Amino acid sequence: MSAHSRPLRILGTGVSTPARWIDSAELDTRFGLAPGTMRARTGVTRRGLEPTRNAAEVSAEAATAALRAAGLRTDDLDALICANASHDQAMPCNAALLHRELGMHRVPAFDINASCIGFLAALDLIGSLLASGRYRRVLLSSCDLASRALDPGDPDTFGLFGDGAAAAVLDAGDDDDERRPALLAARFETWSDAVHACEIPGGGSRLTPARYVGDYRDVCTFRMDGKRLYRTAALHFDRFVAELLDEAGVGLAQIRRVVPHQASRLGMEHIFKRLGLPRDRIEDIFAEHGNQVSASLPTALHHALSEGRLERGDIALLLGTAAGVTLGGAVLRI
């Protein structure tokens, strides 16, 4: 077992079902594009949309499904953690809002924000909390309603992203077998020279409505320089993955399945090419969901687990990039 290893078992996962699916043909009509244009531009066939529910409500659906899959109730939890990139309001934290939606009492609730790879950052922290005995059982949820911050006049971003939530119930397991479920390694690197390549400038104390001259909606809209993001991540990707696998004490041949953040068609193609693995060993749900921001990777993980592509004892490589720019990865023995 790797020196970086910590016991971590997935007891159950769940995802939300969007209130509505929007297919690319509908967006072609909306933007006055020739049939097939949106699918060709983005690689997305359909994406989920939540017109009315807030993130806490959508998260509650995924969390309830994860608890059901684990055969547990909220009373069985020691902590609730939300790892969203965006939030229902500036304060309190979204975990507290989800806590109320689930009807919980006393159990501590707090947020972790690492943008698109919040779920990975939370796994790393939870692994340490479980290993130390601080908590026994944790509910982790990631949710983003990307549609709320998109420019409705920009077909490229509006067609790329989808709304959704995913959740997992985690514990340290109850056996001492060397092959027990574990977080074998986790690694993160931030390259902040590209910090403004992906952002929503408003909503914080730097740009308040009183300090901004103009239409405040302009700075509350998602902005992305996709090419710069890609270049920054691609520059470090090969070394990053090699060092992560080395820390985990495994080789790529031992990886049963790669579960990446479903960032974009270009990003997925880069992973296929750089890892050199058969495509059927890489979880790819991008065309059917789009980029769900923080919910993207855990949604892909849920599908891999619930549909039998990952089973007990398998080793999974989880990878993602996020605003910042941050690279993140984890090696899990399921």
Rank of each mutant, 00 (worst) to 15 (best):
D246P: 00
N113L: 15
A34M: 06
Y216C: 07
L277Q: 09
G36T: 05
H87P: 00
D314E: 08
R73I: 00
G12R: 06
T221C: 14
M91G: 13
F286S: 02
L72R: 15
G12H: 05
D76Q: 01
E311D: 11
R136L: 02
F110T: 09
D23L: 02
F286C: 08
L318K: 09
S5N: 04
S296N: 14
L245K: 01
L145P: 02
E311C: 14
I334G: 06
G48Y: 01
A65E: 12
A248C: 08
E307P: 01
D314Y: 11
H236R: 13
S205N: 12
D144E: 05
D280S: 13
L317C: 08
L120V: 11
T232S: 12
D23A: 03
C116L: 06
Q292F: 01
Q292R: 09
D144Y: 13
D280P: 03
L11W: 02
G118L: 11
D171Q: 10
T326L: 08
R20H: 08
F222C: 00
D238I: 09
L8H: 10
T29N: 10
A248P: 04
A182F: 05
A90N: 06
A248S: 10
L318D: 09
R231T: 13
G329N: 03
G214Y: 06
A168I: 08
A25C: 09
L150M: 10
H303W: 12
S205Y: 07
E311F: 03
R180L: 10
G308E: 09
R39P: 01
A263T: 03
Q254W: 06
A300H: 08
G251P: 05
F188E: 08
I255L: 13
A287N: 08
G308K: 05
G36N: 07
L184T: 01
R312E: 14
R148H: 00
I255N: 09
G36E: 11
R257E: 09
R281F: 04
R309I: 04
D111Q: 08
T74G: 07
A234S: 12
F158I: 05
M104H: 03
N54G: 05
R46N: 04
L98K: 00
R39Y: 03
Q89F: 02
P7G: 11
R20M: 10
T74D: 03
C143N: 13
L229E: 00
L332T: 11
H270S: 10
A69K: 06
L277F: 05
A165D: 09
R148N: 00
G162D: 12
L235I: 02
L120G: 06
R9N: 08
A131L: 04
G173F: 11
V44C: 04
E311P: 00
C220F: 01
A172P: 08
N291Y: 07
V293L: 13
L332A: 06
I334C: 13
D174S: 15
E247D: 15
S142G: 11
D238A: 15
E101L: 04
Q262G: 10
C93P: 09
H289N: 02
A316K: 03
A96E: 01
E189W: 05
